[in-house]
Design a binder for these strands. Structure first.
Lengths: 167, 167
DNA sequence: TATTGTTATACTCTATAACTATA
DNA sequence: TATAGTTATAGAGTATAACAATA
């Protein structure tokens, strides 16, 4: 099953393909590692945001996460059911809810960060310090040059990034 | 909005996060570039596979693409409607269909490869030859070390890779 | 009139199971 | 009994529009 391509290199020779493949794999593994503690990547992102932006309205939070406010409703519902966040009255706008972290969230965040560390270690197991530094620098340049917002990833599902296949 | 993290580096410092972010972006852009010619990433993968494995059964093809045989039905349906492939009688197994490329598929493949080139150029616009070579080497090592199958990407949807958000 | 949170709807994609015709 | 292709069903996810309360 060697790839014989008359005009183009095999996909293994394309950085774009490898990025897509590795990104999908990474997102899936992240969801896998988060699953045992009972949250998904989107919940992690929300808790992480709240640690620095406690007490904001759902509207504000959804803009910062790059998601629609309708989706935010379900996200806050989930986290409220697990007693990780709380909806309180907004101090200045009676239409809005102010969302606050509850104490349990900090322990949850600590455990989620362990998952992040585990993922990073697993992914980069075969790399030494220098390889990692080189890779990080290149990926940061790519992300910046292609207009990706820092720390905002509109591609992480609750469980899996989702879809089907391709070769 | 500077990231102040007591215990962990901002996500921008995590190769795993950047891979997920860049992978999602890349997959989405690929779908965008393919859309004008009327196919999705999964169709491209199928046509590409058929060029080297013409006349195989749907079962065999779905195994090679890493997808379920039920999904293959719709994929072949799509391609048959566009007269890019054809179902014929399998020479040895009367239960199976043998799938063959039609002439129009070769032109479609050529145009799809232009999209691949365009994506690659867009993504790596700020990189010189040496950067690209370094990146490619690192990504290939990562893909291999993490057990990813060459040229098989079970994460490309018909239109978009799909999901919601995270920070 | 616009905005916040919410709900309802439709649409896409997936995963499972079941059916048929063959093997 | 198992397999190839197909179809049906239910589930998850998203996007859009609409609604009540408030600005």
């Amino acid at each position: 099953m060697t790839e014989a391509d008359p005009t183009h290199a095999p996909l293994f020779e394309h950085p774009a393909f490898l990025l897509g493949q590795l990104g999908f794999h990474t997102a899936g593994r992240f969801a896998d590692l988060l699953a045992p503690i009972g949250i998904g990547p989107r919940h992690f992102g929300m808790l992480r945001l709240l640690r620095d932006h406690d007490g904001q309205s759902q509207q504000q939070l959804s803009e910062m996460l790059g998601i629609h406010r309708n989706v935010m409703v379900g996200l806050v519902d989930d986290l409220e059911k697990r007693e990780l966040v709380e909806r309180r009255k907004h101090p200045t706008d009676r239409r809005a809810h102010a969302v606050y972290l509850l104490p349990a969230a900090h322990e949850m965040l600590a455990r989620a960060y362990e998952a992040v560390d585990g993922l990073e270690a697993e992914l980069l197991a075969s790399f030494d310090e220098r390889d990692i530094a080189t890779l990080l620098g290149l990926l940061q340049r790519l992300a910046t040059a292609n207009g990706l917002r820092r720390g905002i990833h509109p591609g992480l599902t609750s469980e899996r990034i989702s879809p089907p296949p391709c070769g």
